[in-house]
Nucleic acid binder design. Structure first.
Length: 492
RNA sequence: GCUCCCAUGGUCUAGUGGCCUAGGACAUCGCCCUUUCAAGGCGGUAACACGGGUUCGAAUCCCGUUGGGAGCGCCA
């Protein structure tokens, strides 16, 4: 009986994400989680979060929390997990040791697994020899038929055994939901370890036991597990268990097409948050990296993703992570936000930059100036900072915007502007624009020739939100004070 | 070394034998709009890895080559 049974389709869908607690939520984990969740939602199933770590040393409360936090920030919600419990717990492998032990005992008693006393150094030698001979490294099977007396002698030497699975010399197969029928001749494989000498299970074993007892119907995971799946199928068969259906997802790559790493810029979800990306943009981007809706739609809400998601259109080839496209998505989402919403998201970045953004309505008026001007939240402080300080720093040379103008010319232009602004009846966009434009006309200057020095005097920068609206938000007093100060500077 | 997976523009991808002089999006270039920067509008450049088959006809099917990736752990 091989793993290409389709009978799981009768059962209610149960899928899972099983990260190891590394302290950070890797972008690959996030995407796998997203696909699993979409699949569960699409078919009215259950999405489970399980912490996969049989390694006691690396598993801490903090390292687990980092992963959950990343997933939560993205808006991914699991129905069962270590933090919220559920009927199939516990949801941490460390707490499931009894199940693994029970399973390995059964295998041992049925002769489907056996104790092996070979030391790591002996195995290493065998492996090297095999590789040198151009053969796949394969366990020799030396301890396969140990008698109780042999075992007693080896134990007396102080050797601690591992447990190996008796792997049959047959072909294992399963149907991959993304890649189709897969098969592999196990004759070259050799008996692999399922329990370490310290009494803990190896991943490929623990995961099988977990999938079985947690009643997973589908396992979507990265393609790096594709070859491991044959080993896992062996375990299922040895136990007489029906395997879930597998789907192996593509990898994310650096621009040089190597497996994604720090070189790509950011790889942890927390980093994207710090860089000013919106979770909905990251989700949308990730969803389309390795899956396509079959239509030309690019922008998807979570609900739309659930609606459109299909295993059939998951791609088979690895995808380069192109941050430029994420930037575009982020801009699209930023522009789609309401001003109050954007303001609340911008606020922490303003505060981190040292600006006091307590006045919500003032912040909103400021943020309204930049909604279609920022691609990332981190750009807001640079653009809006001048609205949150008493004074801007000015350099007379920066005010001299054109070679044909002297310092005196600029001073004259600013003076005329200040005078005109002083007389503006209502401090609003229209009257301000009118005043400045007619000042330019009276001077015989192009509008831009006057507006740029005013812009710099008021904001301290050449790149700013639109000038008239900025003046409105800044207020008459502060605006005029800044222009007057610039004039004084030029006259020195 | 062996086994497995993958292969359309710089990038994500559509395409499942004729609808393909290969479509969309990002990026890029140009123009328009414009008070800077954006945003927006319009337009352009740019791809079926290579070689053999099969077929009246192939980006699509088969084989090989090349390239990339993964696995072969008392890591997960």
């Amino acid at each position: 009986m091989n793993a290409d049974s389709t009978s799981t389709k009768d059962r209610k869908v149960r899928v899972r994400i099983a990260p190891s607690p590394t302290g950070n939520c890797h972008v690959g984990t996030a995407r796998t989680a997203l696909y699993n969740m979409l699949f569960a939602r699409k078919y009215g199933g259950t999405f489970v979060l399980r912490i996969d770590n049989t390694d006691l040393e690396r598993s801490t409360k903090e390292s687990e929390e980092g992963v959950l936090e990343g997933l939560r920030w993205l808006g991914l919600q699991w129905d069962e997990g270590p933090d919220i419990g559920g009927p199939y717990g516990p949801y941490r492998q460390l707490e499931r040791m009894d199940t693994y032990k029970e399973t390995v005992e059964k295998l041992l008693s049925e002769g489907k697994a056996y104790y092996c006393y070979c030391s790591p150094s002996e195995l290493e030698e065998e492996r090297k020899a095999a590789l040198a001979a151009g053969k796949p490294p394969r366990y020799s099977g030396k301890c396969r038929e140990l008698s109780p007396a042999d075992r007693a002698r080896l134990e007396a030497e102080g050797r601690k055994p591992v447990v190996r699975l008796r792997v049959p010399d047959t072909t294992m197969s399963f149907v991959d939901l993304i890649r189709g029928h897969q098969q592999k001749d196990m004759a070259e494989r050799g008996d692999f370890i399922i329990f370490k000498s310290d009494g803990t299970p190896v991943y490929n074993f623990a995961t099988v036991v977990d999938e079985h007892y947690m009643e997973m119907t589908h396992v979507f995971r990265a393609v790096e597990h594709l070859t491991n799946t044959f080993d896992q199928v062996c375990v299922y068969e040895s136990m007489g268990w029906e395997p879930p259906r597998f789907g192996h997802l593509t990898l994310m790559l650096n621009p040089d097409r190597t497996k994604i790493s720090k070189r790509a810029g950011a790889i942890y979800i927390g980093e994207f948050r710090e860089m000013g990306y919106l979770p909905e943009a990251v989700n949308n981007f990730l969803a389309l990296l390795g899956w396509n809706p079959g239509t030309e739609q690019e922008i998807f809400s979570m609900d739309e993703l659930v609606e459109a998601f299909s295993v059939d259109t998951l791609s088979k080839s690895d995808a380069v992570f192109d941050i430029k496209k994420l930037d575009w998505f982020n801009g699209v989402y930023i522009r789609s936000l309401t001003v109050p919403d954007l303001a609340s998201r911008v606020r922490p970045f303003m505060e981190a930059a040292g600006y006091s953004a307590d006045d919500a309505s003032y912040l909103e008026r400021a943020v309204a100036l930049i909604t279609d001007r920022i691609g990332k939240l981190t750009e807001a402080p640079d653009l809006l900072g001048f609205l949150f300080v008493d004074d801007v720093e000015l350099d007379p040379a920066a005010l001299k915007t054109k070679a044909k103008f002297s310092y005196a010319d600029i001073a004259r232009g600013l003076k005329a502007s200040a005078d005109a602004l002083e007389k503006v009846s209502a401090w609003e966009h229209e009257p301000i624009e009118k005043a400045l434009r007619s000042t330019a006309a009276e001077l015989g200057w192009k509008a831009g020739e006057l507006l740029m020095p005013v812009r710099i005097a008021v904001t301290g920068s050449r790149v700013t939100p639109p000038l008239f609206e900025s003046l409105v938000v800044l207020g008459r007093d502060r605006s005029l004070a800044r222009i007057r100060k610039a004039i004084a500077l030029l006259e020195e």
